[in-house]
Design a protein around this nucleic acid. Sequence first.
DNA 1: GCAGGGATACTAGCGGCGCTAGAATTTTGT
DNA 2: ACAAAATTCTAGCGCCGCTAGTATCCCTGC
Lengths: 217, 217
Amino acid sequence: MSIAERKERQRAERYELILAAARGLAEAEGWDAVTTRRLAELINYSQPVLYSHFKGKADIMAAVATRGFEELARRLRMEAANVTGAPDVLRNVCAAYLDFARSRPVVYEAMFVLPTKIKFASEETPPTLRVAFEALVAALGPDREEPVFLAEVLWSALHGTVVLAQSERIPATGAEVRLDVLVRMFSSDRGDGGDGPRAGQSQIRVQVGAAADNSME
Amino acid sequence: MSIAERKERQRAERYELILAAARGLAEAEGWDAVTTRRLAELINYSQPVLYSHFKGKADIMAAVATRGFEELARRLRMEAANVTGAPDVLRNVCAAYLDFARSRPVVYEAMFVLPTKIKFASEETPPTLRVAFEALVAALGPDREEPVFLAEVLWSALHGTVVLAQSERIPATGAEVRLDVLVRMFSSDRGDGGDGPRAGQSQIRVQVGAAADNSME
DNA sequence: GCAGGGATACTAGCGGCGCTAGAATTTTGT
DNA sequence: ACAAAATTCTAGCGCCGCTAGTATCCCTGC
């Protein structure tokens, strides 16, 4: 049965090829430029081949989004798990979220902006997506009232800054300050009893992260 | 020159007819269903007539959005001006924003979600849009540090809740609680020294407003 | 070694999209 | 009444997502 295995492996490789082509094309020219014809040309197959892997264009985008959920969950989980050692988990998790959105804008768009058939906030929600949300809840710290709603609002604020900035509806400059403001608003100790330079630190952190992680693959 | 006036008036009427048709069709079936062919059919003219009024479909949507900016600015300004008498301006302004987004979801989409050529945060920003933002700044109250950035984050949070809820990425239930949370986060006096039942009041307010203002016009 | 048969990929085409050139029609001014 | 000007329409371009039907390839069993 080795021959069947090889075939399946080649199929899986082509599946990945399609996903990579879709993401690459979207990153280069936006999702509007990702057409079935151009995708077919990129992978050196004819259009109908795409439909043997995916139900349609929306399905391809959903697959890209799913990969995004995995990466986002991984990043957030890593920051949220650092309860010991790092004093400001909330800021790090928020920074990681913004960092992800900035480094993979079109993936973020497929995940959270464009219409998708992926179910949110239901039983069939992808586990990775749930993990990402739980990281937000955890980042807010213990003993907070209405933790789920609070996390939803935090997520909304993060998402809002991302999409408004990406669509140039709020200026790109000031992203660091907005992070400062946002973290202060949602931290459990509001009156800034903490150390002052904390803000400056994170500004650098976000900037560097965004600049370093802009590669396409 | 009365005949030229009549012609111009008829042109203006047809312009309005197109806008109304576009908004109505979008409200009934979403922006994807708003095609130049269907619009032409709705107004009983052929397609190219649309292009004598607008540069293209995007221009029509921008016009719908512009009308939306006017209405939103009017609503927010009204709530923000109530400094005297109303103790919680912030809550009322936020509620008005959410109310608008819920009552005119597709207009909101054209304004703040879909790609647009309208310039934000620049010199050529529509005055009404600027007014709306100023209302947000005012609602936050005086003597706050970084008022503009703070307003940007508040707007982001409001926008985030709207779009995540509209795209069913956070559950529709809980909108009132999220408003409560959000207002508490951004109010200048954080420790809830105010009266308790305030939240319940506003919940009713928002719900009634959303239900009453759902007409297609 | 080689024909049959199933899997695989292709060509071609459908209806619909935004948009526009050029023809046909209506309206205007003389 | 008639030519000119403004207006509206017909027809079509290149593109889209998607699919039916055909051709090709490769594995299987003799």
